[in-house]
Amino acid sequence: MATELDPGGAESTALFEAAPFNQARVLEVGSGDGRLAFRYAMVSASVVGIEPDATQLTLARRDCPASLRRRVSFVQATALALPFRSATFDIAVLAWSL
């Protein structure tokens, strides 16, 4: 079984209660290996994860389920220099990154 993170889904439950992810354009800051993004991407319109660590980005892109690839992307960036136009997203998630 190896390592398991939040198998009970407490984080996802809290997130879905916190914000309207349905059809939302979501930015995730500190997306890491994509673990969290994959959990809400199935209901969102689009998800962009930014992550400074190239190794984590590679894992996220590799592990992104085929069914999510059209609406999920991962970009090497930090919140200090966001490469996006103003008013691009409905939700921004600081994922263990503040």
Partner: peptide, 11 residues
Amino acid sequence: VLAEHGTLVDV
């Protein structure tokens, strides 16, 4: 980069 009335979530 957030739209008007956009949501910021800090986890």
